[in-house]
Structure formats: C-alpha cells, structure tokens
Design a binder for these strands. Structure first.
Lengths: 144, 144
DNA sequence: TATTGTTATACTCTATAACTATA
DNA sequence: TATAGTTATAGAGTATAACAATA
C-alpha cells in the first residue's frame, strides 16, 4: 500500500478529546499544588495577558457574568488580583493581577511537567508544525 | 533568513491552551444542547468506549470515587446509563450505556460544529499530521 | 432604555472522611 | 486487612432571575 489510509474524523476527534483530558489533568494538578482550583488558575491565566473587566472575564471564561463576582472575590481575598474602578465608566471594574498572582500562575505553568515533557519529546520542526496546525484548526475569534 | 525561528515553548503552551479551551467550549455547548453538563457528557464518552466499573470511571474522569455515585445517579435517573452487578465480585458494579445514552453522546459529538469545521479546513495530510503529533505529545498512560 | 456588576437561589461538581458489604 | 461503592458534608463552579447604579 503506497499511502496509509487517512485518519478517520472520529479518530481525530477522539484524540483531541484524549489530549484535552491529559492537558487538563496536568493543569488542574499544577493548580491544586498552588492551592488553586482550575477555574481560579484559568482566570489568572486570562489576566496574565492583560487587564480585563468583569464582563470581559466572563466572556473569556465562557461563563455567566454573575459567576465572575465570586471567582474574583476569592482571588482578591487571597491577594492574587485587585479590582480597580474604571476612570471613564463608573459602572466598570478592571481586574488586575498582583505580583503574587503573577507568581502563582507562572508557578502553575512551570509545574505542568507531563505536558512540557510531551512537547519536549518532539523535535523543533514538529513543535513548529503542531503550533501551525493548531492555529489553523482552532482560529481564535476576534476579541472585543 | 533561511529558516524561521523555532516556536518558543511558552507560545506553544499558550496555543495548546487556547486550542483546548476552544474545543472544550464547543464540547460544553454541544452537551448543554442535549441537556447535559460537560461532566455528564464526558462520562458518556468514556462509556462509549466500553463498560466501566465505578472505580474505573473515577480514574478516567480524574476525580474521587465518591463523586461518581452522584454523576451516575443522575445519568441513570435519565435512562442514559445502567448499573449492573458484577457476576464475579459482589462489591463491583458495571456501568453500561443505554441506547438512549449512546444516542445522546453521538448527538453531542455531531453538534461540535466549530471543531468539525476547523478540522475540515485542514487537508487530509494535515489532519494525519495533527493526529500523529498529538499522539506523541500526549501519550496515553497504560490502563489498569 | 441598555449595560455593568452584584445578590439570591438552586443545582452540579468536587474532595475528605466515615461507613457497609465484600474480598 | 484491603477494596468497591455509598453517604454525609462542605466548598466551589454554574445558570437564571432580579436588582441598583450608571450610561
């Protein structure tokens, strides 16, 4: 047989699911080591890309805005984020990562050993290819 | 410059995170359309590969065994799974997908349009490459 | 009128600890 | 003694609906 049969769509979907489960397990375990839930760590991850309003956080976290209040409450109580009023719209609050919050999310990422080892097992060209393929298969939606 | 600079590890981690978030969002939305939580749909997905004991479900779902009782309770109440006693060990219960449960998880998978469209936008050779790279980056652990 | 953030409420998910039945 | 599954409990995540303040 000159060429192997193409991967069935369902097999690729299944492998994506398996990869997600493995990644999420690694991420959650790393978060727990820092005393964080996966939602809390995910929130810090969003904020590590830049300040966001409560509303923007809800969008990024794919959850209702009412949930963000509690999540940010708990993070703020632990000194990992701050709420600051918007200077231009008194309804809006900006959420910022504190230095301690930035340290926490960095530690979480550095603790994802399974994922890091898996990626490190690929050659540089293969990592580039994976990066490229993921970018095409999961194009990021335009934001705000 | 003859060759492009290799993708930074942090950039690849970030893209992996973004891609899996997009996948998970699609999966959760598809589950909600079927009246399922993501945990419930994930449980049906595990069972679609074959029967599992309560203990095996806990391992596959990466959660404590005590949680599985409630998750399976709710699925069973809706007729999506059944519990059957093991013929060889009276402590053990096997969880089976019903026809309705199999229909539900199939519908969920068929409803993941964003993911399907993303994958369909790749050529066959690229889908094969993605399948292969994910398999190497996230090798599945040996199971019981 | 519409939007931002919050509160109240109810359900689900999750871990820990203690328990029963069985091996 | 150890294991499978359950129950009790408490904390966290989630959606819906209603609300006050602001635009």
């Amino acid at each position: 047989m000159p060429t192997p049969a193409p991967v069935a769509d369902s097999a690729l979907m299944q492998r994506l699911s398996d990869s997600l489960v493995a990644y999420y397990r690694d991420f959650t375990a790393a978060a727990v080591k820092e005393g964080l839930t996966s939602t809390q760590a995910n929130t810090l991850g969003v904020l590590s890309r830049g300040t966001a309003t409560m509303r923007e956080l809800a969008t990024a976290l794919s959850c209702d805005a009412s949930n963000v209040t509690g999540v940010v409450d708990r993070l703020e109580r632990r000194g990992l984020v701050n709420r600051e009023p918007s200077p231009t719209d008194r309804r809006v609050k900006h959420v910022l990562l504190t230095d301690e919050g930035r340290r926490a999310i960095t530690t979480v990422r550095d603790s994802m050993l399974h994922t890091q080892q898996g990626l490190a097992s690929l050659e540089a060209a293969d990592r580039d290819a994976l990066y490229e393929l993921l970018g095409r298969a999961f194009p990021q939606r335009a934001e705000g």
